[in-house]
Design a protein around this nucleic acid. Structure first.
Length: 334
DNA sequence: TTGCGCAGGTCATAGGGTTC
DNA sequence: GAACCCTATGACCTGCGCAA
C-alpha cells in the first residue's frame, strides 16, 4: 500500500468518525471534517489533474474541479472500507462525474471511447418512430435477453433444488452412520444417565444425539458453502470455528460421497456422470513419491504429470450442476 | 519488468479418542 | 495394541496485485 493510499484511508476515516449519523455535528467535528476533506483533495489533486486532461476538459478546468470535489463528497458518503480501498472507489466516482460533465458540455465522448467506435445515444432521441409517430422510449426497448434469463432462472431453480436434495441425502447418510455409532457406544455412568429401556447400547443418549445433529448441521453448511457456493476456507472457518484444514478434509470426503450418492440414486443420474469426471485424481503422498524416487532416477511413468496427455474443459453449464465453486474440477485428465 | 507481500489452498504429521 | 477417525498445526506452494 502506497503512502498516498494510507494517507487517504486515514483522512477518510477521520471524516467518517466525525460525521455522526444519529446526532448533530459539533463545531469541533466540523473543523476536523473540513481539514480532512482538504487533505483528501490535496492528496488526489494529481489524479484529478490527470483525469481532467484524460477527459479533455482542460478548457473547463474550474467546472471539472468542482465536479471532482462533488465526486469526493459522494465517495466519502457511500464508502465502505470492507469492500475496497478508498483510492479505488474515489477514482470511479471522479470518472463518473467527469464523464457526466463531458456529456453536458460537449455531448460526445472522450477520445479513448471513440477509438473503439462507441456511440452515445439519448433515449429521448428515439422517441419518434420511422413513420414519424411519437412513441415512448420505454415502448421501444426490446429485451432480447428476457427469454434466456427466464429459462436460466428456471434452470437455476431446478438445479438448486437438486443440489439441496443431494446434500440432504448426504446428511442422512452421515446421520445413519452417526446414530449407529452412538448405539454401539457404551453410555456414561452416573446419576444423570437415563435408564436403558432394553438390551445393552440399543438406545441413543439424547445429549449425544443433539451433539450429532449440531455436527451434521455444521457439516451441511460447510459442504453447501464450500462446494456449491464460492465461500473460501477462511470465511467458513471464521463463521463455523472449524479450522481451514478440517473444512478442506470435510469437503473432500463429502465430494467423494456426493458422487457415490449421485451414481447410486436414479434421481441424480443427470449429475452423476459430470460428478465422476469432475472428481480430482488422488495425489500421491510425498513419502510415497520420495520412496519411489529412491528406486529410480528416471521419471515415474505412472506419475500424474507424466501421464497427462489431454486436458478437456467442462462447459460452464454442465459444470454448474455439481461443482460451480471448484475450479480444479474444470479439468478432466485422461 | 521484477521483486515482494499477501491470500488462498494443499500436504504431511501429530495427538486424542474410539473400536475391534 | 493396532487401526481408524477427527482435529489441529505448521510448512510449503501458487497466483495475483502493487510498488519501485
Amino acid at each position: 500500500m502506497s503512502k498516498t493510499t494510507i494517507a487517504l484511508e486515514a483522512a477518510v476515516a477521520t471524516v467518517l468518525e466525525n460525521t455522526p449519523k444519529d446526532a448533530p455535528q459539533t463545531n469541533r467535528q466540523r473543523v476536523y471534517v473540513d481539514r480532512a476533506f482538504a487533505q483528501i483533495l490535496k492528496l488526489i489533486a494529481p489524479r484529478i489533474r490527470h483525469f481532467v486532461r484524460q477527459y479533455g476538459l482542460t478548457a473547463h478546468w474550474e467546472d471539472a474541479e468542482q465536479c471532482c470535489a462533488i465526486a469526493v463528497h459522494r465517495a466519502i458518503e457511500s464508502y465502505d472500507p470492507t469492500k475496497a480501498q478508498f483510492t479505488t472507489f474515489v477514482n470511479w466516482q471522479i470518472r463518473g462525474e467527469l464523464q457526466s460533465l463531458r456529456f453536458r458540455l460537449m455531448t460526445d465522448q472522450r477520445p479513448s471511447a471513440k477509438k473503439v467506435e462507441a456511440t452515445t445515444i439519448s433515449l429521448s432521441a428515439l422517441a419518434t418512430s420511422p413513420d414519424g409517430d411519437e412513441i415512448s422510449p420505454e415502448a421501444m426497448i426490446e429485451d432480447e435477453d428476457a427469454l434466456g434469463r427466464t429459462e436460466a432462472g428456471a434452470s437455476d431453480y431446478l438445479a438448486e433444488g437438486a443440489v439441496s436434495d443431494l446434500i440432504d441425502a448426504y446428511v442422512d447418510q452421515l446421520r445413519k452412520v452417526g446414530v449407529e455409532a452412538l448405539r454401539r457406544r457404551p453410555r456414561a455412568k452416573g446419576a444423570d444417565a437415563p435408564v436403558r429401556r432394553s438390551g445393552p447400547f440399543k438406545t441413543v443418549d439424547p445429549v449425544e444425539m443433539e451433539k450429532l445433529e449440531a455436527k451434521l448441521q455444521r457439516d451441511r453448511e460447510i459442504v453447501e458453502r464450500r462446494i456449491f457456493e464460492t465461500a473460501t476456507l477462511d470465511e467458513i472457518s471464521n463463521d463455523t470455528g472449524v479450522t481451514k484444514e478440517r473444512i478442506r478434509q470435510i469437503t473432500k470426503r463429502a465430494t467423494k460421497a456426493l458422487v457415490e450418492i449421485a451414481t447410486e440414486q436414479p434421481r441424480f443420474a443427470v449429475m452423476a456422470e459430470d460428478a465422476r469426471r469432475a472428481m480430482p485424481p488422488a495425489r500421491p503422498r510425498r513419502s510415497a513419491a520420495v520412496a519411489a524416487a529412491k528406486v529410480s532416477l528416471l521419471p515415474d511413468p505412472s506419475a500424474l504429470h507424466n501421464r497427462l496427455a489431454h486436458v478437456e474443459a467442462i462447459e460452464a453449464e454442465r459444470r454448474s450442476y455439481i461443482t460451480p465453486a471448484l475450479p480444479v474440477m474444470q479439468l478432466v485428465m485422461h
